[in-house]
Amino acid sequence: MENKIIPYGRQDITDEDVRVVIETLKSDFLTQGPKIKEFEEKFAKSVNSKYAVAVNNATAGLHIGVMALGLQEGDRVITTPITFAASANCARFVGAEVWFADIDRDTYLLSLEKTKELIESKPKGFFKGIIPVDFAGLPVDLEAFRKLADEHGLWILEDACHAPGGYFMDSKNQKQFCGNGVYADAAVFSFHPVKHIACGEGGMVTTNSDEVYKKLLLLRSHGITKDNMSENQGGWFYEMQTLGYNYRITDFQAALGISQLARNEKGVEKRNEIAQKYKKAFEGKITFQSLPDKFLNAHHLFVIEVEDRKGLYDYLHQNKIYAQIHYIPVHQLPYYREIGYNNDTDLSKAEDYYSKCISLPMYPTLTAEEQEFVIDKINLFYSNNL
Rank of each mutant, 00 (worst) to 15 (best):
residue 194 V to P: 13
residue 172 K to G: 12
residue 188 V to P: 05
residue 363 Y to S: 00
residue 236 W to L: 14
residue 140 V to L: 13
residue 92 R to T: 12
residue 113 E to G: 01
residue 334 P to T: 06
residue 54 A to C: 09
residue 325 I to C: 04
residue 94 V to T: 10
residue 175 K to G: 09
residue 46 S to D: 07
residue 289 Q to V: 15
residue 6 I to Q: 00
residue 176 Q to L: 04
residue 360 L to M: 11
residue 130 I to P: 10
residue 116 K to T: 15
residue 323 A to N: 03
residue 99 W to A: 00
residue 105 R to I: 11
residue 194 V to R: 06
residue 65 G to P: 09
residue 87 S to Q: 03
residue 171 S to T: 10
residue 213 Y to T: 03
residue 39 F to H: 03
residue 87 S to W: 04
residue 224 I to H: 05
residue 118 L to N: 04
residue 40 E to C: 04
residue 169 M to Q: 07
residue 154 L to P: 08
residue 173 N to E: 11
residue 206 T to C: 05
residue 186 A to N: 07
residue 181 G to P: 06
residue 243 L to C: 08
residue 385 N to V: 12
residue 340 G to N: 05
residue 366 L to W: 06
residue 276 Q to A: 14
residue 208 N to M: 05
residue 270 K to E: 01
residue 85 A to Y: 13
residue 34 P to E: 06
residue 335 Y to S: 09
residue 126 F to Q: 03
residue 182 V to T: 09
residue 139 P to V: 05
residue 380 L to C: 13
residue 259 S to Y: 01
residue 73 E to P: 08
residue 253 Q to L: 01
residue 39 F to S: 08
residue 29 F to Y: 01
residue 174 Q to L: 13
residue 180 N to M: 10
residue 37 K to F: 01
residue 75 D to Y: 11
residue 190 S to Q: 02
residue 73 E to A: 10
residue 181 G to N: 09
residue 248 R to N: 10
residue 252 F to Y: 14
residue 196 H to G: 10
residue 30 L to E: 03
residue 332 Q to L: 15
residue 381 F to P: 00
residue 200 G to W: 04
residue 357 C to F: 06
residue 73 E to D: 14
residue 310 K to P: 06
residue 150 D to A: 03
residue 232 N to G: 07
residue 341 Y to N: 15
residue 287 T to I: 07
residue 298 A to M: 10
residue 341 Y to W: 09
residue 43 F to M: 06
residue 287 T to D: 09
residue 233 Q to L: 05
residue 207 T to F: 03
residue 375 I to F: 08
residue 278 Y to W: 15
residue 179 G to C: 04
residue 360 L to I: 01
residue 82 I to F: 11
residue 172 K to L: 14
residue 308 D to E: 14
residue 61 G to T: 01
residue 196 H to V: 11
residue 82 I to M: 15
residue 183 Y to E: 00
residue 5 I to A: 01
residue 165 G to A: 08
residue 79 T to W: 01
residue 157 L to G: 06
residue 21 V to F: 02
residue 219 L to I: 05
residue 306 V to S: 03
residue 125 G to K: 13
residue 172 K to T: 07
residue 385 N to E: 10
residue 216 L to T: 09
residue 91 A to N: 05
residue 231 E to N: 08
residue 197 I to F: 13
residue 166 G to R: 06
residue 300 H to E: 15
residue 185 D to H: 15
residue 179 G to S: 02
residue 147 K to W: 07
residue 260 Q to Y: 00
residue 286 I to A: 09
residue 41 E to H: 11
residue 278 Y to P: 12
residue 231 E to L: 00
residue 90 C to V: 10
residue 355 S to H: 13
residue 76 R to S: 15
residue 359 S to V: 14
residue 381 F to D: 04
residue 216 L to N: 06
residue 199 C to H: 12
residue 238 Y to G: 07
residue 129 G to Q: 12
residue 42 K to D: 14
residue 250 T to H: 09
residue 320 K to Q: 12
